[in-house]
């Protein structure tokens, strides 16, 4: 006895017509968890991102901790204050991100657009200041291992800011094209989670590179 369902072989001869209810598409999958799939996916992605930072922090641990040399090396100077201001900029962008999401939930279109746009601009400012810091800091990644890990960690973070900005750009474009409703705002929420992660990660990077 073949199964009661209509058989639809994965392989058909060319030209052969599939004998199915092609029209009705797949059955609705059962939702076996209250957690939303995209939300969960982003969470798992962030876990693996944290581990990637973990690998770089391991390098930091060896170069700074195990080698046990003066940090920063004599003759080099880390602009703690400027980076502190930059930290404030990035953290405030988390709040504007939150504002954007709340606006989306409350059907406040102007707030959504303004929120996304300010977040994007704050993030871009952060990156610009970071690049400016690179230009003026006075040492290069190839000078010594401390330089390597300084550029390694801040650069890895900068790359994440860049990815976050790209996601924000998508969301912003879509917001201006009229997407997102109080019911469907996942396209804001999911990049938002990523953005918050990027911010929190910066606090760790800032603390370990500049402050400690």
């Amino acid at each position: 006895m073949e199964s009661a369902s209509v058989s639809f072989p994965a392989r058909l001869e060319p030209g052969e017509k599939p004998v199915t209810h092609d029209h009705h598409g797949p059955p609705e999958a059962n939702r076996s968890s209250r957690v939303d799939a995209q939300f969960l996916g982003m969470l798992l992605f962030i876990i693996s991102e944290i581990m990637l930072f973990g690998a770089f922090f391991t390098a930091y641990f060896f170069i700074r901790g195990v080698a046990n040399e003066a940090w920063p090396a004599e003759g080099t100077h880390l602009p703690v204050a400027v980076a502190g201001v930059n930290t404030a900029i990035l953290i405030s962008s988390s709040f504007t991100m939150h504002w954007a999401l709340e606006s989306a939930k409350n059907e406040n279109r102007a707030g959504l657009r303004a929120g996304l746009l300010t977040t994007f601009l704050l993030g871009a400012t952060f990156l610009a200041i970071q690049v400016n810091e690179y230009v003026h800091i006075g040492f290069a990644p190839g000078d010594h291992a401390q330089g390597s890990i300084f550029y390694g960690l801040t650069g890895l973070h900068g790359a994440h800011v860049f990815v976050g900005l790209t996601l924000l750009l998508f969301a912003t474009v879509r917001a201006f094209r009229g997407h997102f409703t109080p019911k469907d705002h996942r396209g804001v929420e999911v990049p938002g989670i990523y953005w918050h992660f990027v911010d929190i990660m910066w606090i760790l990077v800032y603390a370990s590179i500049y402050v400690l």
Partner: peptide, 26 residues
Amino acid sequence: VIATPFIAGSQFLVLFDRALGTHFFN
């Protein structure tokens, strides 16, 4: 999900040492 980023990290560092002249392993 938890472990694979570490090999990515290790190869990034090798790539930096090779291509950018960093000193992670020097």
